[in-house]
Amino acid sequence: MQYSDEELVERYGAGDGESFRMLVERYQDRVYHIVYGIVGNKDEAEDLSQEVFLRVYRFLHRFKGKSRFYTWLYRLTVNVCLSARRKRKNEPGKIFSLADSSKYGDDPGEIELTDESFSPLKVLQNREMAETIKSAINSLSEVLKSTFVLREFEELSYEELTRLFRCSRGTIKSRLSRAREQLRRKIEPYLNGTV
């Protein structure tokens, strides 16, 4: 039987430990992907993802259902990442370790190509371009990067982002606009296909 998130939280509160495991397995990939997008290191992403769920285990009883569970979870995820980055503020973080991905050079899977003159695959196959994009995203401030990652990776709506970050819709619009503009300027040659 497929339980909803809220049902699993309720069952966990009633003492069903299995419900916690089901929540973890449901969200572990997404949490990991978000964390990896923010910190850019696989080992650190593993460690921080575990930390996220340790906090879920510790604070799940405080979740009162005022928001969707995933909103609460993603907020916790962002906070864990931002806390970790603040502790390591002198150590430059990395964004996606694209060079580590075993997918490049192998079958890349399905990529939607709506603009035939521009091939993301071709761009990403160029390691130099990949590093430049990585560096550009990493240069964003933590808040802009978190907002950008959650929008692009998790496809959260503006409404969901306002609830997660507890800010206005205008703030979310502004953050995404600024993040994209900064990235666009930094990697413009790659977007034009001139590199």
């Binding site: 397995e25 990896y36 997918k103 994209r180």
Partner: peptide, 26 residues
């Protein structure tokens, strides 16, 4: 157009997953 390409570029990045046994380690 550039924003659109940036968007598709980022979305094309493969989704990263944790190593198997995540819950056991947790």
């Amino acid at each position: 157009e550039q924003l659109g390409r940036l968007h598709r570029l980022v979305r094309s990045i493969p989704s990263e997953k944790p190593r198997s046994g995540f819950y056991e380690r947790l």
